[in-house]
Every structure is written in C-alpha cells, then in structure tokens.
C-alpha cells in the first residue's frame, strides 16, 4: 500500500464477511461479556461525537428557520452561479482525469519500462501536496508576477482569479484518484486476457472495450465517484486561485465561506447541505461498490463446506 493513499483502495478490501471472527475463546468470564460492549460503546461514542454530530448540525442549521428560508437561500443568483461554476470545474476535470487514469494504468500494467515505480510515485504526488500549495503553484505560474503573467496580460488573458485557474487547480488536486484505483487492479490482472483476445483476431480497441473495460468497470466507477467528491468539495486550492469574486469566481465551497463569514448561517448551511448530500451519496455508492466487488469475488471463490470447518 502506498502511503500517499487518500482513500482505502477498492482492491485491497479483504473479505470482511468471510473472516468473521468470534471472540477467540468463549470462556465463562464476566470480563469477556463486558469488554466488547464497552469497546463498541466507546467507538460509537467517538464516532458520534466527531462524525455524526457534524453531519447532523449541517441539516439542522440549514432548516432552522424552516423550509421557506432554506429554499430562499438558493434564489440568490450568486448561489446559482457558484453551483454552475462547481459543475463546470468538475465537468472538465473529471473526464480529463478519467482518460488519464485509464491511460496511465494501462501503460503501467501492460508494458515494462524503466522508471515505472517512479512514475507511480509521481502520479500520487498531488495527494502529498497541501491544497494551499496546490493553488499557490498556479498563482506562481499564471499570476501577474508569475512566469507567464506578463505574456498573458499582454494578450488580455486571465487564468488566475478566473475560471481557468479554478479548473486547473481542481484538475491538479483530483489528478490521482482514478489512476490509483486502476493501477493495482490492472497490474494484478496482467495482460493474458488481452493477448488471448488479440490472438483470436481482435483489434486493440476491441480488446479494450470487450476485455479490459468490463474487468475494470467497478474500479473506474469507484475512482470517478471519489474524484467527483473531491472536485466538488475542493476548498483550499480553489480558494487561492479564485480571487473570491462573488457571482464570478466563487464555487460552492467558496460561496459557503462568504455566507458564513457574513453571518448568513442558514444560507451557508443550505449550500453546505447540498455538498453534504453529495458526500453521503458518495459514501453510499462507495459502500455499494465495495459490496459489489465482494459479491463478484465470493461467487468465483465459493468456499466448500470442508474448508469452512
């Protein structure tokens, strides 16, 4: 497992359900009945405090003044503009990183070349970079004082404090998501099936669409939903490059910041509730995909009765 890991890799999921572990020794001991309960209570308590409570507060604050106020928050044109901009940035970075992720995983899994492990490390690089620094590097390149600043200014082109900068920063921070899901999976699968397809007369594209893609579809989807969640929610990097021009360069997270700092709490949480909902859908899809992959594995590797006992 690479330490640059942002999320748990789908491929590393162990068979949770099949390795059901009972408490190791079921002896008569008052502790043994007490300890698990105590530990579980502690764990649930910690998660309730740190995870569930923040989730609840978002929706409760958003609806504090009733449905009317909640929906009124979305009538503000700058709110709409923020949603639109978030969708644009996501809509551009997602396909780009998807194509890149598949291409990179393909190149890494199916070919041998020098420096492969360096390449894998480089792909993970954006995860190691703080979001603020991810934004900063684009300011340094395209800002007024940056490398291309003067050149861009002459031609009246603006990247920083404009939509292109936001898109670039979003691409950067979501860069590794699809690739890092696919690389271990495709490496594990090897290229035997593709070679078989080619030997049977398939073209390269046919072997990709009929053989490769079906094998990696769940991992692709997994990478895409994680990529999407990060793209829609990115705050730090986008904040650096956006310039916070209301109604022009504000994405949803940036708009939330402005509303919150203006003490417009209901509106801020109303916008936040949209992103929280997106986050919950992401979690649900992620859990579903992990379950789905598990199912696929279990049907191919059904243990026999003899192995169970």
């Amino acid at each position: 497992m690479s330490p640059l890991q942002e999320t748990q890799s789908l491929n590393n999921q162990n068979n949770l359900e099949t390795s059901v572990l009972k408490p190791t020794a079921k002896y008569i001991d008052w502790l043994s009945s007490l300890v698990p309960g105590l530990l579980i209570t502690l764990a649930i308590g910690f998660m309730a405090l740190f995870l569930v409570l923040p989730l609840l507060v978002i929706f409760i604050e958003a609806f504090k003044l009733g449905l009317g106020e909640y929906f009124k928050s979305f009538q503000d044109p700058s709110a709409w503009h923020a949603v639109k901009l978030t969708l644009i940035a996501t809509g551009i970075s997602l396909p780009l990183n998807l194509v890149f992720g598949i291409a990179a995983a393909w190149a890494i899994a199916k070919f041998e070349f020098v420096g492969k492990s360096v390449l894998i490390t480089l792909i993970d690089l954006p995860f190691a970079v703080s979001p603020i620094i991810s934004g900063l590097i684009f300011v340094l390149m395209f800002g007024l004082q940056g490398w291309f600043g003067a050149w861009l200014a002459e031609r009246d082109l603006q990247i920083i404090f404009a939509v292109p900068g936001i898109v670039l920063a979003t691409i950067f921070v979501t860069f590794p998501f699809v690739a890092r899901e696919l690389i271990p999976l495709m490496q594990e699968q090897g290229s035997d099936e593709e070679q078989a397809a080619i030997s049977l007369g398939a073209t390269g594209w046919q072997s990709f669409f009929y053989i490769t893609l079906p094998n990696i579809k769940w991992a692709v989807l997994y990478g895409v939903i994680l990529c999407n969640a990060r793209a829609m929610g990115e705050f730090g990097a986008v904040s650096v490059v956006s310039g916070h021009i209301r109604g022009k360069t504000n994405t949803v997270p940036l708009h939330i910041e402005i509303l919150y700092n203006e003490y417009n709490v209901v509106a801020a949480f109303a916008m936040a509730s949209l992103l929280a909902l997106m986050g919950l859908v992401t979690l649900a899809l992620k859990t579903f995909l992990e379950w789905k992959v598990q199912q696929d594995r279990n049907t191919t590797l059904e243990p026999t009765l003899a192995e169970v006992h």
Binding site: I40, E257, A272
Partner: peptide, 30 residues
C-alpha cells in the same frame, strides 16, 4: 469493526470515510 459483530457495524464502517467525502469547508463550518 473487524472483531465484533453488532447492529450498525456496516453503517459505522461506511461512516469512517465521511471526512473524505465531506468537503472540508462544510466540515469546517459544522
């Protein structure tokens, strides 16, 4: 999550990733 079976375990397992899925600004104001 690994050692015990209890009601809500799967939900709890899924919730662990909430900080990944929730945009940082949203977690911040919450």
């Amino acid at each position: 999550l690994v050692r015990y079976r209890f009601p809500g375990r799967r939900l709890m397992d899924a919730l662990v990733d909430l900080p990944f899925a929730l945009p940082t600004a949203v977690s911040g104001i919450a």
